[in-house]
Every structure is written in C-alpha cells, then in structure tokens.
Simulated scan of single mutants.
Amino acid sequence: MLSSKQRAFLRGLAVEADTILMVGKSGMSPDIVKQTDDALEARELLKGKVLETAPLSPREAAEQLARETGAEVVQVIGAKFVLYRAKKKDPAIVLPKVKK
C-alpha cells in the first residue's frame, strides 16, 4: 500500500512518462494483461489510457490490471491511469520513506 507522500512522488514522475498502454473496444484481454505485466517489469511506472470504445471505465480498467499484475493504482484522471510495481531485482524508482 502506497502512502500519500509516495503516491504524490509517483504522480510527479508520471507527468513526464509516455502513455504506452491503450485499452480499447476489446476490453481486458489476456494480451493487455501480459503487456501491462511486461511493461511494469521493465519500467516500474506505467501510464495507460482507456479509449471511449472500451467497455470499462478508466477506474475499473486500472483496478483490474493492478489486481491481475500485483501493481498499485497511483492515479486515475479522466481516461488516463498510472500503475506502479517495483521490480523484483534492482528497483530503479526509490520511494520516499514512510514515517510511522
């Protein structure tokens, strides 16, 4: 679970990121889930977009992809969403520490 400070940090990084995932009229196919999983392993932070023809809302698509790939939903704004999952080996993104 991400803290609000970590979420804000990731949102800042996502501003510069390109949208590399499109969910279209075919909805949530195994190919989309595989593509998301591969992109998260390579980049850790992924920005996606849900097209108007998609049968899912952006929130539904983001939450379903996060659930199926073990990622966290960072934000959903309009048709776009951002997902985060740290790499298993040598994470490139270092999150701010959580104060207890």
Rank of each mutant, 00 (worst) to 15 (best):
I32L: 11
D18W: 11
T53S: 06
K89F: 12
G27Q: 04
E52T: 10
E16W: 06
A66C: 03
V74N: 13
V74T: 04
R67D: 08
G48P: 05
E63H: 07
R59D: 05
T19L: 10
Q64P: 02
K87W: 10
S57V: 06
D31I: 05
A62P: 01
V94R: 03
V76T: 15
E44N: 04
K97P: 01
I20T: 02
K5M: 11
G78E: 08
V74L: 06
I93H: 06
I20A: 07
A71P: 03
Q6R: 02
G48H: 13
A92W: 01
K97A: 13
A39Y: 08
R11F: 03
S26W: 06
K100F: 08
R85V: 03
A92T: 12
A54M: 01
E63I: 10
K49C: 15
S57P: 09
L21S: 02
G27K: 03
D18A: 13
E41F: 00
A8S: 06
R67A: 15
I32H: 02
P30G: 07
A17Y: 05
S26A: 12
F9N: 10
E52A: 08
S3Q: 02
K99P: 14
T36G: 08
Y84P: 13
T36D: 00
V33D: 05
G27N: 00
E41R: 03
F81T: 11
A62C: 12
V94F: 00
L95G: 15
A17E: 09
V15P: 03
T53W: 00
E52Q: 13
S29G: 04
K25Q: 14
V50N: 01
K97R: 14
A8L: 11
A71K: 00
E44F: 11
L45I: 15
V94Y: 00
L10Q: 13
M1L: 03
D31P: 02
G78H: 06
E63C: 12
L40R: 04
K97V: 12
M1T: 14
Q35D: 06
G24K: 08
D37F: 04
F9W: 12
L13V: 02
V76H: 10
M28K: 07
G12R: 12
T53M: 10
L46Q: 06
A71I: 04
E72A: 15
A39E: 04
E63S: 14
S26E: 14
K100D: 04
S29W: 01
L65C: 08
